[in-house]
Simulated scan of single mutants.
Amino acid sequence: MALNRNKAGIMAAISAATEGKAPIGQTAETSRAHRTLPKGTVGSVRAGLGGIQDIDTALILPWGPQDRLELTAVNTPDKDVLDLIDSIQTSGQQVPVLLRPAHQHDGKFEVIYGRRRVLACQQLGIPIKALIRTLDDGEALIAKGLENASRQDLSFYERARFAQAILDQGHSREEAQQALSISKNTLSQLERVARLIPDDVGSLIGAAHGAGRPKWMTLAAAFDQGAVSKSGIIKTLSNVPDGTSSDDRLQIVIESLSKRGAKETRSAERSPISGTVVRSTKSSVSLTVKRAGDTEAFADWLDDNFDRLIKESYQSFKKDAGR
């Protein structure tokens, strides 16, 4: 696929820029212009210089889907940004950020990755060390995903929000999979978490780097079943002491779900048609159809066809899950 083919070229361009050379097969002239910028604009010229450059942070604009929960109620001021400020003050900026010329604003740049480093340098009042490459949206998305994958420091929930942001900005599911290096099934799980857990709740909990998929899927399932509400979770979190870590906040929320056991059971019962009851619990899903009145004939038909319906449903599930 096209994005796969672009990976090597993107990484070669970034590596070449670090060494101050034009990418293989390109001269400084051919690598200069952002494909959406006329030759001679400030951004195009800076992109053609190659190597690591010092860029005024006031010239840098945000770009693309956000990959981290930054500056939320939980992590303001962001601990990682504070750590970066200390590190840059002590040892200087060790890793450059990746920028591209902003085609709508001559002389400005969009940050592909390194947003927190930009913020740290902005707080320090110093220029940022950056690579400037001419990437289109698809290439920029892959570069952002590759940089994240190389560090592997995104939490499960941040990956879920990142995946949803990619899709919300009009990128395809294939592009989202490429950017995050994940399967169809994993993307479906990330989408489910991002879709079912309200953003307000997720931001209040925070990234929870120590928590993996199970806890977030449990919370998503609770919202899906109507066992919890956004206002209820926000109320629970409002009683949590300031300074509580995001991992502990998530654990408190998960523990609060068990205290709603009776409510969960009631909320997990539904009746799609009269005479039927679907019960969903943590351990099973069951269907009851009364052999009486209007549903007696339906119960007999269902009894005769149940094996076939289950098999067809299971095949449909495997197809949707990419298994």
Rank of each mutant, 00 (worst) to 15 (best):
N75A: 07
Q152K: 13
D199I: 07
R161S: 15
I234F: 03
L61T: 08
C121E: 06
A17Y: 13
A2P: 14
I126C: 04
I254Q: 05
F109M: 05
H103N: 14
S316C: 04
I142F: 05
K318E: 15
I233W: 06
S183R: 01
G261P: 01
V277T: 14
D83I: 05
D56P: 02
E174M: 01
H34V: 00
G43V: 11
V289M: 12
K318R: 12
K318Q: 10
G114Y: 10
L250M: 02
S245W: 09
S44W: 03
L84Y: 12
L61V: 09
Q251T: 01
S229N: 09
K129V: 01
G210W: 00
A140C: 03
M217F: 05
A13H: 15
A33M: 08
A28W: 15
T288F: 14
E255I: 00
Q104I: 07
V240Q: 01
L69R: 13
A73P: 12
I254E: 02
T76W: 12
G40L: 12
I142S: 08
A2S: 12
V277A: 04
I310H: 14
Q225W: 06
R213D: 11
Q177T: 08
R291G: 08
A165W: 09
R68G: 04
G40R: 04
S150I: 05
T41A: 06
L82H: 13
V253N: 00
